[in-house]
């Protein structure tokens, strides 16, 4: 392999790793615009990955897996939604509780579904799709236009989510609920309905992000596969200033660190390899901290983000 081929392969991998982050952070951008900080996205992504895997494994049809992943994602996010919207519980604590619940549930059903132990594998995956003509462009083609369908979907979603937030009545209401739910309710907006709608949307996107991991990126399921992706998506939202375009940029940055740590673990050799590889796996989290310190300080989010709101 020449240096250029390696560089291109690495860049393509960065884009691939960015894909679940982009899907999830777009979803999180929507709910945070409505004033909800969903840290349970980590657990929701795990459930999405798991339910997607189960669906595909037992029916043998990938598209069914996609559907079950979205259902799993929506179910987990809605459970979180009931806690924070219906019962007005603390959003951070509820999110963390969902995460703990999700890993417990996933492990349990993994053992129920596969009592023999070990990790089941899929024999089929969503393969990268080479876009005719465009994938022939040198350098750019193999990096951007030879990706799984998830990636093209995520890219198309960026302007769609942008339009939804800034150019539709729903978006205006969503933003008003995120700025001040009390005022929004005074002008006749059903705060709960808006928030549930945004949560369903996030659930579907996060489910897809999870499905990407188990149905395209890897062909197996392990509770560790999605670890950290949800939290990283939350920091991408902050770094991207609650803007879908910002989420795209943030996802590419974090996708690169993920890819770096993945490649490092796979290709490093020598006596220090294992410790170096471990060091690389913390790279995304170090980047997260740096991003939060830099990005979190200069950006102002929705005023009511994370604040409890009970209808009068």
């Amino acid at each position: 392999m020449t240096g250029l081929t390696i560089a291109i392969a690495f860049a393509a991998s960065c884009v691939t790793f960015a894909c679940p982050l982009l899907l999830a952070s777009l979803g999180e951008t929507v709910v945070e615009r409505g004033g909800i900080l969903n840290l349970g996205i980590e657990g929701a992504m795990l459930i999405g990955a798991f339910s997607g895997f189960l669906g595909a494994y037992f029916t043998g049809v990938l598209w069914v897996g996609l559907l079950t992943a979205m259902i799993g994602g929506i179910a987990s996010v809605l459970l979180f939604g009931v806690l924070v919207v219906r019962f007005n519980l603390d959003q951070v604590v509820s999110g963390l509780a969902i995460n703990l619940l999700a890993s417990g549930v996933a492990l349990y059903f993994l053992r129920v579904a596969f009592p023999g132990g070990g990790y089941p594998h899929l024999n089929f995956l969503f393969q990268p799709f080479a876009v005719p003509l465009l994938s022939q462009i040198p350098v750019v083609g193999p990096i951007v236009f030879n990706q799984p369908g998830f990636f093209y979907l995520a890219i198309v979603l960026v302007p769609i989510v942008f339009y939804l937030i800034y150019r539709t009545t729903f978006g205006l209401r969503l933003r008003s609920v995120g700025e001040d739910p009390r005022i929004a309710s005074y002008v006749g907006i059903n705060v709960s309905r808006i928030r549930y709608t945004s949560l369903v949307l996030e659930g579907a996107l996060v489910g897809l992000a999870g499905a990407f991991v188990t149905l395209s990126q890897f062909n197996t399921f392990d509770t560790r596969l999605t670890t950290g992706l949800g939290f990283i998506a939350v920091s991408i939202v902050i770094l991207g200033r609650w803007n879908p375009a910002g989420a795209l940029i943030g996802s590419l940055i974090f996708g690169s660190t993920e890819a770096l740590s993945f490649w490092g673990t796979a290709f490093l050799t020598g006596p220090q390899a294992s410790s170096l590889a471990q060091l690389l796996t913390i790279l995304p989290y170090v980047t997260t901290l740096v991003a939060l310190v830099v990005g979190g300080r200069m950006s102002k989010g929705p005023s009511a983000l994370g604040a409890p709101y009970a209808k009068e």
Binding site: T169, L172, S176, E179, I183, A184
Partner: peptide, 23 residues
């Protein structure tokens, strides 16, 4: 007052006028 401070006058009025779909 029940206005969202970071919104413009028009956006605030638009909030309470239900025209679904495109803003």
């Amino acid at each position: 007052l029940s206005l969202i401070p970071s919104f413009t006058v028009t956006e605030n009025v638009a909030l309470s006028i239900p025209l679904p779909g495109r803003l």
